[in-house]
């Protein structure tokens, strides 16, 4: 406590000194002096709560997922069995000229969509870039900070394009989920209808992914958020209906983001377990004889 007090006194002293210099120089209290950043020592704060717990948990969660996804993407086996195809490898793109894992050809799309997502940006700017680590806690960087106004973070503006691509991938994942409802090789043959643990996991995954994808801030803007008048035309009234529905999803965007991140990892893990004969895909019922 005493150390913190001393640090703060020093902060305040620097700040007052800076203001005094400013007053002497220009007699203008509202002007700022770009060269001097007063009272800004890294991680200085008066907060006594566990402010570090949130960003630390998020950093841990992201790191574990990134490690798992990277290992699985490069593993290049145990990603397909019977009617189950891992979401990391879907759509399965196989070309003669490509000699590496097909996951690499597809994973950049969901990765890019999440990396540019407004929720994830908040999360990793806090947890990894420490700008700031928490509210009221001094982060990294001084006056040169330029946020998303310059390279590299200006690239975040491609988010809506990543959304378009992610929607295509999502449609393919729905197709994969539908395939789990039929025994392998009998897609849309209703005499071979079945429902397995794999079906349950695949459908949960695509529902969570849909909740996340269609609650996206960019989509919210595209369906009607960009309009100023909702009542002006029949088209804008319809847009408002869509906008309201997307807004409902968007209000829990963080929850959908985490649910879908966990579900996509777990779905892949389940496929790996089945493909490597660790567990069977238990079938609840099947019409196939």
């Amino acid at each position: 406590m005493r150390k913190a007090d001393e640090r703060y006194r020093l902060d305040i002293f620097c700040r007052v000194q800076n203001i005094a210099e400013e007053l002497n120089g220009s007699q203008n209290m509202t002007s700022t002096k770009p060269a001097d950043i007063p009272n800004k020592q890294f991680l200085s704060t008066r907060r006594e709560d566990n402010w570090w717990l949130g960003p630390a948990s998020i950093a841990l969660g992201f790191t574990l997922f990134i490690i798992y996804a990277t290992v699985r993407a490069f593993e290049n086996q145990y990603f397909e069995v019977s009617n189950l195809l891992s979401p990391f490898y879907s759509p399965k793109l196989e070309f003669d000229w490509w000699h590496y894992s097909p996951a690499i050809l597809i994973l950049w799309i969901p990765a890019g969509f999440r990396a540019t997502c407004y929720y994830y940006r908040k999360a990793y700017y806090r947890s990894f870039f420490l700008t700031p680590p928490a509210c009221g806690v001094t982060g990294i960087g001084g006056y040169k900070y330029c946020g998303e106004s310059k390279f590299p973070f200006i690239i975040q503006n491609i988010h809506r394009y990543m959304f378009y691509l992610a929607t295509i991938v999502l449609a393919i994942l729905w197709w994969d989920a539908l395939q789990t409802l039929f025994t392998a090789g009998h897609f849309f043959d209703f005499s071979h209808l079945q429902f397995s643990v794999g079906s349950l996991i695949f459908f949960a995954n695509v529902i969570f992914l849909s909740g996340y994808t269609f609650g996206c801030h960019a989509f919210r803007h595209l369906v009607g958020g960009g309009l100023d008048c909702f009542s002006c035309t029949e088209g804008s009234k319809t847009a408002m209906t869509f906008w309201e529905k997307v807004t409902k999803l968007n209000e829990n965007h963080q929850l959908w983001a985490w649910l879908s991140l966990f579900s996509v990892g777990f779905t892949d893990f389940y496929v790996r377990c089945v493909a490597s004969n660790v567990i069977p895909d238990y079938v609840f019922f099947s019409l196939a004889k």
């Binding site: 908040k122 946020g147 998303e148 968007n250």
Partner: peptide, 24 residues
Amino acid sequence: GGVGFCNITKCCSEVCPEDIHITD
């Protein structure tokens, strides 16, 4: 206005006493 400077870390929304969803 510098809208690009905002990296949407949502602290403004957290402290708003009127509960305005400033960021979203």
